[in-house]
Write a protein that binds this DNA or RNA. Structure first.
Length: 716
DNA sequence: CTGGGCATCT
DNA sequence: AGATGCC
């Protein structure tokens, strides 16, 4: 039964009494939002944490010298955030680089387009909070909501004797000292918990931030920013009306975005008060029932939405924006670059993506920031396996052609086009292994993000749990040993950005294979035998089977494999030497801003060498850092070439893709893979001629992973 | 000179 | 697949 029992009674007796937490059915007052799916405790204690200039803090931890200078984090031409030294000089968030430099000529800029470090720190923060109580919901990378109602009740029970209640930090609209103590013991305890958590965050992660303590997410969020850097504020119920009315416009209400604000304005509503008194019926006409009620409630400061544990992300994506991209070659290279990084992240996550999506944004004078278009498709199982097994290069080689196919569904490359953004995304992430506990997926970040091992078990268990018993751990925050976390971490020795890669290979091609192509000189390119129908493709099976493939055998294969074969088969091939041929092609590519495989951690802050000529602002190169000589370089070097030993087969390469490359590039690619090919791996396995089949199928199941199925067919 | 994620709802 | 929202 409701364990809420243990709580004490007292104070606001009435309303809370009936259904404090457990509350079964009657939502009573909660009915407000129309949607009554989750009862929502009548009185909760919700915390909202908001880290101070998050990206800037992460960079200052990585390079302490930055603490003393005005620092701006730059993404393209925008300062997305800056430290307080810079703010003193007039720099603000989302200011253009030009304006910022004008205001503060000495502003030091660090590029922040690669979110790796921010994401890692962000999850450490969430994990830390979760170690005290599982009900933690993320909002972006730098904010977290936490429902500490249970923790508060427990403390209330323990310390029932001492009535010494006071608030930690500020209390909204209360001059200060006059603590109205125990009229609100729960919120007061919440303020203590918030203070302890902020201290833990600072001690263990080196981060400072603000916290808001209130009875709902809406209110906690609104109040948290009352006193800005590194402070906390509690909002008492009697001040709800005040805090809402003080908002300068409806747009300030969380949940009211750009579009909604415009629609409201069209109805003549501009201030919060306007919406509070506006007839609900009229609102319903515009927004529909549920949305109307929700909006009105928000204006009134009413929000019964629960803190929903976020857990591991449901999708992983990587994107880049630019001024102009108008050739297929550039698109291909960009996709390859984005995929290399994304696949690496996906591998670390540990889950297997079932869906891949490609999104683009076209240039358009009018609607510049909108209109994104996307196409998605399933991720072939064997590709997902490559990701999970760590054969990231192979996976990328298989995904690039898929992505190009999706691209061509949206863009007619024979006509001119002008893109300003490309995004690649994996979703429908499936926890591997048997126990599919759909939800338990705490995988990734939670488990291995930090140091592999110590990781927290707690996170795994805490995750799902029936709300009824989601107990907070509340081990005294102070001692709290369980959590691990390495405090300030790694970066002390940050790696130096600069040189490592730029110099290394002047050519800068990263190691990742871009396209796998089967190369045989086209003997008859198209099919010889099996062709049955000319058309379509993707699904039609037999057409275009390579000459050496036995159609009968082909039919027995799983569909994905058939597809793979078809796509790789329809590329040209050359049979010259005997090997099969599948080559991995490496395209010279620029950039790399994303880290290639193995050293994900190292990331450069600046990475010049990018293709974008334009930016090269004065990025900083941190003083201390320096490179560790040997290692980085070595790593890099070896990766780039020889390494590809296990090359792979072609996956599906769109011939179109390959053919679109400039001749010299094609040539280079060809010779490139030629070199790699000899390496170990499979060549040997090729069984004699095509007798294959049956048994091969079997073997194929498992061992063949690294090599393509083509080997079974290929004879020659 | 407008970033790079994420989520939810339709 | 798109819109919208939030950081």
């Amino acid at each position: 039964m409701d364990q809420s029992e243990d709580e004490m009674e007292e104070d606001e007796a009435e309303w809370r009494s009936s259904f404090v937490d457990s509350v079964p059915p009657s939502p009573a007052a909660a009915s407000v939002s129309g949607v009554s799916k989750t009862p929502a405790p009548a009185h909760r204690v919700i915390l909202h944490f908001d880290l101070d200039c998050f990206y800037a803090q992460v960079e200052m931890i990585r390079n302490p010298a930055l603490r003393e200078v005005p620092l701006g984090i730059q993404q393209k031409y925008i300062i997305v955030t800056c430290n307080y030294v810079a703010r003193q000089q007039g720099v603000t968030k989302l200011m253009s680089v030009t304006d910022a430099k004008e205001k503060c000529p000495q502003l030091v800029l660090v590029k922040g387009e690669d979110l790796t470090h921010y994401r890692e720190m962000s999850y450490k923060m969430t994990e830390l909070l979760m170690s005290y109580c599982p009900l933690v919901e993320r909002l972006g990378f730098d904010e977290n909501f936490m429902d500490v109602t249970d923790m508060v009740e427990r403390r209330l029970a323990e310390a029932s004797g001492s009535k010494n209640f006071s608030f930690k930090g500020h209390v909204y609209d209360h001059p200060s000292a006059d603590v109205e103590a125990s009229d609100h013991p729960r919120l007061a305890l919440g303020s203590h918990i918030a203070a302890e958590l902020r201290e833990a965050i600072h001690r263990k992660l080196g981060l400072t931030g603000c916290a808001g303590i209130a009875t709902s997410k809406l209110l906690a969020k609104l109040v948290s920013g009352t006193f800005k850097p590194n402070q906390q504020t509690t909002l008492l119920p009697e001040k709800v009306g005040d805090i809402m009315v003080c908002l300068s416009s409806l747009r300030k209400v969380p949940g009211v975005g750009h579009q909604t604000a415009k629609r409201l304005q069209a109805l003549g509503l501009v201030t919060v008060k306007d919406l509070q008194v506006f007839p609900l019926n009229d609102l319903v006409r515009e927004f529909g029932g549920p949305s109307a009620q929700r909006l009105k409630n928000l204006a009134l400061g009413v929000d019964d939405s629960p803190v929903t544990p976020t857990g591991a992300p449901q999708s992983l994506s990587d994107e880049d924006s630019f001024k102009k991209m108008s050739s297929t070659k550039e698109v291909l290279e960009k996709i390859q670059e984005l995929l290399s990084s994304l696949v690496e992240r996906m591998h670390k996550d540990g889950r297997q993506p079932q869906t891949f999506r490609l999104t683009i944004r076209r240039y358009s004078a009018t609607n510049k920031w909108f209109s994104r278009e996307s196409r998605q498709c399933p991720v072939p199982n064997h590709t997902g396996q490559k990701i999970m097994s760590g054969s990231c290069d192979d996976a990328v080689a298989q995904l690039v052609p898929l992505a190009m196919k999706l691209f061509h569904k949206m863009v007619d490359s024979s006509a001119t086009f002008h893109l300003t953004l490309i995004n690649v995304c994996f979703s429908n992430l499936q926890t591997r292994g048997a126990a599919a506990g759909g939800k338990g997926s705490i995988t990734s970040f939670f488990t291995h993000s930090t140091s592999p091992r110590k990781t927290q078990i707690f996170s795994a268990q805490s995750q799902q749990e029936d709300s009824s018993q989601s107990r907070c751990v509340d081990h005294q925050l102070s001692t709290h040993s369980g959590i691990t976390q390495h405090t300030s971490q790694k970066t002390v020795t940050t790696k130096s950005p600069c040189s490592s890669e730029g110099t290394l290979h002047g050519f800068k091609r990263k190691q990742s294979p871009v396209v796998a192509v089967e190369a045989r000189p086209l003997q008859e390119v198209s099919c010889s035998k099996a062709r049955s129908d000319p058309d379509e493709t993707d699904n039609t099976v037999t057409h275009r089977l390579p000459p050496d493939v036995d159609p009968e055998v082909f039919r027995l294969l799983p569909e994905e494999i058939q597809k793979e074969l078809l796509s790789s088969a329809y590329t040209k091939s050359h049979s010259s030497t005997s090997r099969t041929s599948v080559e991995v092609v490496d395209v010279p590519h620029k950039t790399k801003n994303k880290s290639p495989k193995s050293f994900s951690d190292s990331q450069n802050i600046e990475d010049v060498s990018r293709l974008d000529p334009s930016h090269r602002q004065s990025t900083v190169s941190p003083a201390g850092t320096s490179v560790s000589p040997g290692e980085n370089i070595m790593e890099e070097g070896k990766m780039s070439f020889p390494q590809s030993s296990d090359c792979k087969f072609p996956g599906n390469v769109d011939p179109k893709v390959f053919s679109e490359l400039p001749p010299d590039v094609q040539k280079e690619l060809m010779s490139e893979w030629k070199q790699q090919k000899p390496v170990l791996k499979s060549p040997s396995s090729r069984k004699p001629g095509r007798s294959l089949m049956t048994k091969d199928r079997k073997t194929a199941g498992k061992g063949s992973q690294t090599n393509n199925l083509l080997k079974y067919f290929k004879p020659s």
